[in-house]
Computed example of a mutant assay.
Amino acid sequence: MTSDLLAGKVVLVTGASSGIGAASAKVFAREGATVVVTARREDRLAALVEELRGEGAEAAYVVGDVSAPQDAARAVDFAVGEYGRLDSAFNNAGIGGDRTPLHLMSDDVYDSIMDINVRGVFNCLRHEIAAMLQNGGGSIVNNSSVGGLVAIPTAAPYIASKHAVVGFTRAAADEYAKQGIRVNAVAPGTTRSEITTDWFGRNPGLEELANSLTPQGRTAEPEEIAAAAAWLLSDRCPFLTGVVVPVDGGFVNQ
């Protein structure tokens, strides 16, 4: 069931080849949005766009790596060139990295996490905001994590990166509020995705532990995160900016 939350809006979704990103593209399209998706895996994007178009949605894809400034710019430029404007964006692209004690963490793991999770959001924000300023405003949601609000052992670079996403969200929201651009973030708890499936597969018992620490006692489905992002991107909350919404089954509220 949909409510046309995003009817008439052109929305960009990064990291859309799987998990929360793919689920968000589907939710946004069903809420009436024209969806532009971007990620590194073209086969996944092509299949997603074909599915969305099969359901009657307007959708297109751009292959790219958001850690590369030119790729982030190209995705935004494509949306504006193809559909005339960019109304909203969900900066979802991110990676999890290794579950390793800090003193054993490698430079390569640190660099890859920071490039995607932090530089990627920075690259997207600056190009999305520039496009939205030409359009008189817009709405952006960044995907942080409960790891952007609390600490989780053996994941220090990931935790640092998601705290940085929170910082970017608050800074951009403050800087562009008077120019009609709202910037918020979602902070998912344990959510079914390629990242968590990989973590759970390499760390037996981790999912059960995470669920035991979550009041609802379960792992979220990616569509549940997408639903929160859709509301934040919509016009239903025009006075809401600079906030980080935990979508975590009550984890950080204990």
Rank of each mutant, 00 (worst) to 15 (best):
R126I: 14
P204H: 09
E208M: 10
R182Q: 11
I159H: 03
E42K: 15
K178N: 07
V13L: 12
T169Y: 05
S161V: 09
T241E: 10
K162N: 08
A210I: 13
K9P: 01
V27P: 08
G189V: 07
A173N: 06
S106T: 15
E221N: 03
S234H: 04
G136L: 11
A75S: 05
A72T: 02
S139T: 13
G21D: 13
R236L: 12
I20R: 01
G217S: 15
V165A: 14
G167F: 12
L6E: 15
L48V: 03
A230I: 10
A93S: 03
F251Q: 04
E175G: 07
E50L: 14
V10G: 04
P238Y: 00
A160E: 07
A210Y: 10
S161G: 06
N91K: 01
A23K: 07
L86V: 10
A23H: 03
A7L: 12
S67L: 05
A173M: 13
V13G: 07
N253L: 05
V109E: 05
P157Y: 03
M1E: 09
N117K: 09
A220V: 10
L240C: 12
A220I: 09
D65R: 11
T196M: 15
S112Q: 10
L86H: 00
P246R: 06
F28E: 03
V10M: 05
G201M: 13
R170G: 09
T154C: 07
A210S: 14
